[in-house]
């Protein structure tokens, strides 16, 4: 503990003297600067996480515009709440927690919208010709998938329930550790492992079905 404190003291001194290059500093040390309103340090943090977060959120929500909006919102929240961040946890965990919460909230909103559109009475509006069903055609981001297999995998991820989708994206796409995923989703590592296993089993079934259809 004492050693850790002295290390932090050295790092803070280095920060103040401006000796170290900000590109080589760890996320946590850089974020100490951000907490002191160093905008340049925040730009470096944004540069490090921008594409990773976008990739993660895109795989969750499967919509380019929505993913961009959520990434923007994530960084806004990170900046606004920078003083709430405690250095006891990884910065990446904290940022992913914010991003995942936003993505899952978006998925819940979509589900509600879908629920209400399916439950709307056809008599409410005489001009209504039918009920809204989820669009299973190519989404705005589908062109990003280079081949049929890519589209099938993304479609299979889209079909997963939120709790499995989150862990599959964090584990198999972002390649985070089980412990980190547990911190992000605020659940025990055992639960994460169980969800990853079930999510993979479901994916496997869906992809096998897709293979049968193709062949």
């Amino acid at each position: 503990m004492a050693e850790n404190t002295s290390t932090n003291a050295v790092q803070v001194t280095d920060i103040e003297s401006g000796v170290l290059d900000e590109l080589t500093l760890s996320d946590e040390v850089l974020f100490v600067r951000v907490q002191r309103d160093d905008i340049r340090a925040f730009e470096v943090i944004v540069g490090r996480y921008r594409t990773r977060l976008y990739n993660c959120i895109y795989r969750m929500v499967h919509n380019m515009e929505c993913a961009e909006d959520l990434v923007q919102e994530t960084f806004l929240r990170v900046y606004r709440n920078r003083h709430n961040y405690k250095a006891i946890s990884n910065l990446s965990t904290w940022i992913y927690t914010i991003a995942l919460n936003l993505a899952r909230s978006e998925l819940r909103k979509r589900k509600r919208r879908q629920f209400f559109s399916l439950n709307a009475s056809p008599h409410e509006n005489s001009t209504r010709e039918g009920i809204d069903l989820p669009d299973t055609s190519a989404g705005p981001g589908d062109h990003l998938e280079q081949n049929e297999l890519g589209r099938a995998i993304q479609h299979a991820i889209d079909q997963l329930p939120d709790k499995y989708r989150s862990v599959i994206v964090l584990r198999d796409i972002e390649e985070l550790s089980y412990e980190q995923i547990g911190e992000i989703l605020r659940c025990p590592t055992g639960t994460v492992k169980s969800r990853v296993n079930r999510g993979r089993l479901r994916l496997q079934e869906m992809l096998r079905q897709w293979q049968v259809e193709i062949l």
């Binding site: 990739n55 895109y58 795989r59 990003l144 995998i153 991820i157 599959i168 994916l203």
Partner: peptide, 13 residues
């Protein structure tokens, strides 16, 4: 299935 998911290309904004 795991290999297929990991093979998804990284998308950029």
């Amino acid at each position: 299935a795991v290999r297929a998911v990991k093979s998804l290309p990284a998308v950029s904004p």
